[in-house]
Computed example of a mutant assay.
Amino acid sequence: MNFNIRNERSEDIERIFKLTAAAFEQEKHSSHTEQFIIDALRQAGQLTVSLVAVENDEIVGHVAISPVTLSSGTAGWYGLGPISVLPRRQGQGIGSSLMKAALAELQDQGAAGCVVLGDPGYYGRFGFKAYAGLELPGVPQEYFQALSFGGDLPADTVQYHESFDATE
């Protein structure tokens, strides 16, 4: 496994779209709109972090991070996702490498923290935890997790950018 992680480039956009669609195609807990969400975030200027894992000029993984809104108005919080790895390359450490690089980039930018909606078993490996008082409406508490980069964890309702409603 010999891949590099770098910022997305304009020539990567179509490949990121196809990779994301393929990565979520068989996921039962997916809306199957993740590729549209990334495009909508990009078009809205809301992709704070967009990294690709590249091996032999093939994009094998991608991660997106965008700002979220907290009900208290607390600034500096972001939402991780979607994160995608080619189905034939899943389980080989690409997603973990993308996660670590994306979280490090957020910290370098001075972010207060990051939230994620997903499997606690997976995201817990990176320090994400569910916290009482921090919620995403309509989502079971244990699947909405946060990682603070040093400050207090807010007790708030979180809202993702409207791009997460994109369906095409």
Rank of each mutant, 00 (worst) to 15 (best):
V116A: 07
P137W: 09
R15T: 06
T33Q: 09
Q26N: 10
G79M: 01
L147F: 13
V54M: 12
E55P: 02
K28L: 09
A101W: 05
A146T: 05
L147P: 15
T20M: 06
G127A: 09
D165E: 14
Q159C: 15
S30G: 03
A40I: 06
Y143D: 08
L86V: 07
I94T: 08
A75P: 02
A112F: 04
L153K: 14
E168R: 11
A75H: 12
P154S: 14
P87M: 12
G73H: 12
S66E: 04
F126L: 03
G73Q: 10
S97I: 06
E11W: 03
G93D: 07
A21C: 03
S148T: 13
S72K: 07
L117R: 02
F24T: 13
K100L: 03
A146I: 00
V54Q: 11
V115T: 10
R88I: 09
G113A: 13
R89T: 04
S30T: 07
L153D: 02
A130Q: 04
L19Y: 01
L153G: 06
E55K: 12
Q43H: 12
Q141R: 13
S72Q: 08
D57A: 07
G45H: 15
R88L: 06
V52Q: 02
Q35R: 10
K18Q: 12
Q145L: 15
G150C: 12
N4C: 08
V49T: 10
E168Y: 03
R42P: 02
L106D: 10
F144L: 04
Y122S: 15
A21P: 01
R42A: 00
L103G: 14
L70Q: 14
D156H: 12
D57S: 09
R89A: 07
E11K: 10
A112C: 13
L117F: 11
V63D: 01
L86C: 12
L70W: 04
D152W: 00
P120M: 11
N2S: 15
F3K: 01
N56I: 00
P87I: 08
F24L: 12
Q43N: 09
Q46M: 09
Y131W: 12
A75Y: 07
N7R: 12
R15S: 06
Q35H: 15
V49A: 06
E105G: 07
L80I: 02
R88N: 11
L47C: 04
N2Q: 15
E34W: 05
E58P: 02
Y131S: 14
Q107T: 09
Q107D: 13
A111Y: 07
V68F: 08
L134R: 03
Q107F: 11
V139R: 01
R89C: 02
V158H: 03
R6G: 06
G118F: 00
P140I: 11
V60L: 08
F17Y: 14
Q145E: 10
Q35T: 07
L136W: 04
D152A: 13
E135Y: 11
E11L: 05
A22Y: 02
G81Y: 00
G91D: 06
L51D: 01
P137R: 10
D39Y: 15
